[in-house]
Write a protein that binds this DNA or RNA. Sequence first.
DNA 1: GATGAATGAGCCTTCATTCAT
DNA 2: CATGAATGAAGGCTCATTCAT
Lengths: 204, 204, 204, 204
Amino acid sequence: MRRTKEEAEVTRANLLSAALKLFGENGVTATRLEDIARAAGVSRGALYWHFDGKGDIIIELLKTRTDSFFHVLDEALGVAGDPLDRISGALNSLMRHHENDVVFRDAMMLEFERAILDDRDNRFHAYLKQTTERYVKVFSAIIEEGKQYGSIRDDFPTPYLLQFLGALTTGVFMEYRLLSSGNALTPGVNRDAVIKLAIEALKA
Amino acid sequence: MRRTKEEAEVTRANLLSAALKLFGENGVTATRLEDIARAAGVSRGALYWHFDGKGDIIIELLKTRTDSFFHVLDEALGVAGDPLDRISGALNSLMRHHENDVVFRDAMMLEFERAILDDRDNRFHAYLKQTTERYVKVFSAIIEEGKQYGSIRDDFPTPYLLQFLGALTTGVFMEYRLLSSGNALTPGVNRDAVIKLAIEALKA
Amino acid sequence: MRRTKEEAEVTRANLLSAALKLFGENGVTATRLEDIARAAGVSRGALYWHFDGKGDIIIELLKTRTDSFFHVLDEALGVAGDPLDRISGALNSLMRHHENDVVFRDAMMLEFERAILDDRDNRFHAYLKQTTERYVKVFSAIIEEGKQYGSIRDDFPTPYLLQFLGALTTGVFMEYRLLSSGNALTPGVNRDAVIKLAIEALKA
Amino acid sequence: MRRTKEEAEVTRANLLSAALKLFGENGVTATRLEDIARAAGVSRGALYWHFDGKGDIIIELLKTRTDSFFHVLDEALGVAGDPLDRISGALNSLMRHHENDVVFRDAMMLEFERAILDDRDNRFHAYLKQTTERYVKVFSAIIEEGKQYGSIRDDFPTPYLLQFLGALTTGVFMEYRLLSSGNALTPGVNRDAVIKLAIEALKA
DNA sequence: GATGAATGAGCCTTCATTCAT
DNA sequence: CATGAATGAAGGCTCATTCAT
């Protein structure tokens, strides 16, 4: 069957979103290409026309993930005002997306997959590295800004504060993930409380 | 061939520790029974003499994990003095073990494996649940104690403080994990800083 | 590699006939999927493309067996004339097929495989039941007809005559089977004699 | 544990009867040595002390089978009187044993196991051959005797009558077997009717 | 662009057999 | 005599990947 370029694009997009959904639900390893193809309504052969294989799909998704993460982050941090408030807003925004946007959550969780972490041929490493570095840069900047501004404490080196913030964020993300597996510590995440406590810890 | 009862116990122990090590290094899914057996210096058949299969090994390891986790935790919390100091000490102890004791770290990380989280036949769920519940109980108690004692803030419900603490701990654990994959935010975890910030956030 | 639909059908048919042949020669249990695939000139993977596994192949073969058995039987019984003669003709026809058509013989013998008889998950049972019931119905009818017609003895209930006939048929079939294993009672089956004796026993 | 000679004999006998029972219930192939040993209350090692392996057990059982079969047969045929009556009695006796003596039935059925029929290394063949030949000799003799006596028809060569009789017997045995698998033609075997019909067919 | 067919490597599991104790 | 531990050869099945059409 000959298809137009637009139809092909649709197929490609369907494959990607099907893959992300299934990766999120069942994990990268447990998701077969067959599953992805079926969910996208095409055959495995079609998948191989659009992508070079499983790894290629993952890379595409990692790219998208970086984009959507920083899109949310930049928007939240890019407002005017006290940097600490903006950090608070950013945390809130990230967590809200995690809670409400399943695509966003699936994309974030991709990062914690062993299949990606233990990247034997270093295919994915670059994409993760890139995110990490940008994350560090963005947050370091705003923390520095907050110190200058006077709202963020000055008695800790920025990397330490960054680490505190990063760990907390990661931990909350994991809680969301554990919630869907029924293994979370508490029956739900109280966004406001966690953020308030984090912000207080950073406060000058 | 191992013949005596003691030698068999050694074989069994070797299999378990080989499994834990390999699960930690390469992930549960990527670890083949063949790998475990070879690392333990026996054949796959021997593995099946001691265990019912991969799942059975995982369950044994999860049991051990619970034991070692609470062993560390109880010891750290079980001293006299200000509950907040004891929490601080417990965090320190857990993180130190994570840093220095690779067996401990591998055991802790087992919990975040998708193969275990997405427990289709609910074989592992009970063991995770058990840990989670005990963790909640232990930490809730000491937080309450701290409130009574006057060193922990009283303006947040205990579950919220617990969640904050839990997320931070999980996040730091993940950082250790990411460090070994080369994907951590920072080149190392500064234990003291993270703990100090966390404790300050809880302080009355 | 077979690519077109027709070629795929050929592959499928080859797999089935190879399976039947090997089941007949070596038994169901002793036949490996590898053997079947190799005999059909394809890989084991191809086998799994066409069938769900060994059990699925068996079911297909059982279906075919029912068809070919009743095809032979109906044709032989469906002529005009004395029912007893028609029974005689049917026995003759079945035995001749057993002697000359190795595919027919293998298909018939499938039924006596323990792997099929001791059908733990009741997958095959339905197919056997179906054949048995139809066999009983067909032969009961013609025996009744023969009684009416006056050529078959009336002093025995039909089920008893049916049983006599069935046992004799089964026994002769087993003889053919034993012949190929070199364990038969006699160096060959004398069709005419056995049938004549059976028919005389039934005669009014 | 050191055991006396008598105890060892008991173990051996237990192993044999456990094996026969399990072979009868689940088939030779599906019965594991582990099953046999467990049913006999010993370990697999013990089994290997008494026997050389699965094949050795089968051979022992085949020997016993021959003995018990001819014991029943000889006793029934060895009376005085009309040979045809004695054949009738023998059939009755064999069928009665099949119906009532599970050990006898299991022993008889052993013969139809593929594992034994398709004896690749010809280990069992001799034992089967021996039975077959003796069976042929015994029945040929009594048929000849019946012809002489005048009660058995003279218009068929003895081998043909023998074959008729043998097939019928085998067929009835199979019916007993199928009964326990739930696949028999009729809900039970009517011994008297089948025998009467067979005898009439042979009658002079 | 897409499909259906086929490959082949790899994994889990079973089980007869061996053997030190 | 008997046990428990261990071996190793298969066998069934899965799945990423290839490719003619």
